[in-house]
Computed example of a mutant assay.
Amino acid sequence: MPVDPWSRPSLTDLRSVLESIGKSDVNHNRNAERLELSVPAEITTSRGNTVAAVTREISRFGLGLLHKGYIQPEEVTVRMASDTREFEYRVKLEWCNPCDNGMFISGGRFITQKASAV
Rank of each mutant, 00 (worst) to 15 (best):
Y89Q: 10
A32N: 11
Q113E: 15
N97T: 12
E36F: 06
L65C: 02
C99N: 06
G102R: 04
N101A: 15
C99D: 04
R8W: 07
S82L: 00
R47I: 05
G22Y: 04
V91Q: 08
S10A: 07
V51R: 13
A52D: 11
I105P: 05
I105T: 12
E94D: 12
G108D: 06
P40T: 09
R85C: 12
E74C: 10
K114Q: 14
G48L: 09
S116N: 09
E36T: 06
F110T: 08
K23A: 15
L14F: 00
R8I: 05
R90H: 06
N97E: 15
R56N: 11
Q72K: 12
T84R: 10
E94W: 06
I58E: 04
S106D: 02
L63S: 05
N31C: 13
I21L: 15
D83C: 03
L18T: 07
V54W: 06
K68S: 12
N29P: 03
W95Q: 09
A53E: 06
V118D: 05
T44W: 00
R47H: 10
G64S: 04
N49Q: 11
E88S: 10
C99T: 14
G107W: 03
P40Q: 03
I21P: 03
T12P: 00
V17G: 04
G107V: 01
R109N: 14
K92I: 11
